[in-house]
Design a protein around this nucleic acid. Structure first.
Length: 211
DNA sequence: CAAGAGATCATCT
DNA sequence: GATGATCTCTTGA
């Protein structure tokens, strides 16, 4: 398991998106856990990426970039490997990674992750929590950022270094036959781009947001 | 089970 | 002033 370098993201978005499946989103939970077990204070939590969407170029009517460069989306036009977090619907943060060469606006939205197995030694530790009242809580872009505590503080930071407490590591290679390619969620307004099969998920995985 | 509404506010026009 | 890369809850068949 090694951290994915910037060069991984500096490739065509559709490829990066699919290659991210099976990789691990790793977070170093930050400071606010004074009350939790001190023995785990410095531990990381590894979530397997199981569902993503690609937003590809200026022409993609579903992409923020389609209406040109703005204060919010300008990071999509920059170099690859930067974290793009935006706030939507008045209550959710969306986690994206900028992809592709500089000046080509593109990004991958992380839509669902699979939590690590519950910690046997400390089953009540929050970082090992995978469900709430029986429901999966990392199967949706707005839900997973809430669980991981990802907000605007991460916007604009590189995901290819560990320094900021959030990075991605390589994982198991997912065979192409195991990758489902289908339409993106919530982009009915996007004209012909509505029908692009730019949402990818691991076939049969129980932690995806939708089939 | 599916469809519809409401929450709630930063960003864009 | 309108909307959205969402989610949860309610309604009704």
């Amino acid at each position: 398991m090694h951290i994915l370098p910037q060069s991984f993201y500096n490739r065509p978005t559709l490829k990066v998106a699919q290659d991210l499946l099976g990789c691990f989103l790793v977070i170093l939970p930050s400071g606010k856990s004074r009350t939790t077990n001190a023995a785990h204070a410095n531990s990381t939590v590894r979530y397997k990426i199981v569902e993503v969407e690609a937003y590809d170029g200026l022409n993609d009517l579903a992409s923020h970039a389609s209406r040109g460069r703005t204060e919010r989306n300008k990071i999509m036009f920059g170099p690859a490997g930067m974290i793009y977090v935006y706030f939507t619907y008045g209550m959710y943060y969306m986690l994206n990674i900028v992809t592709g060469v500089k000046d080509y606006p593109a990004a991958v939205l992380i839509r669902a992750v699979e939590p690590p197995p519950p910690l046997v030694t400390s089953p009540r530790l929050r970082s090992g929590q995978t469900r709430e009242r029986g429901a999966i809580i990392t199967n949706g872009p707005g839900k997973l950022t809430k669980v991981l505590g990802i907000d605007k503080r991460f916007h604009g930071l590189p995901i290819y270094v560990k320094r900021h407490g959030l990075w991605i590591e390589s994982g198991e290679r997912i065979k192409p036959s195991q990758i489902k390619k289908t339409t993106r969620i919530g982009v009915d307004y996007a004209g012909k781009y509505r029908d692009k099969n730019w949402r990818f998920y691991i076939r049969g995985n129980q932690f995806i947001s939708r089939k």
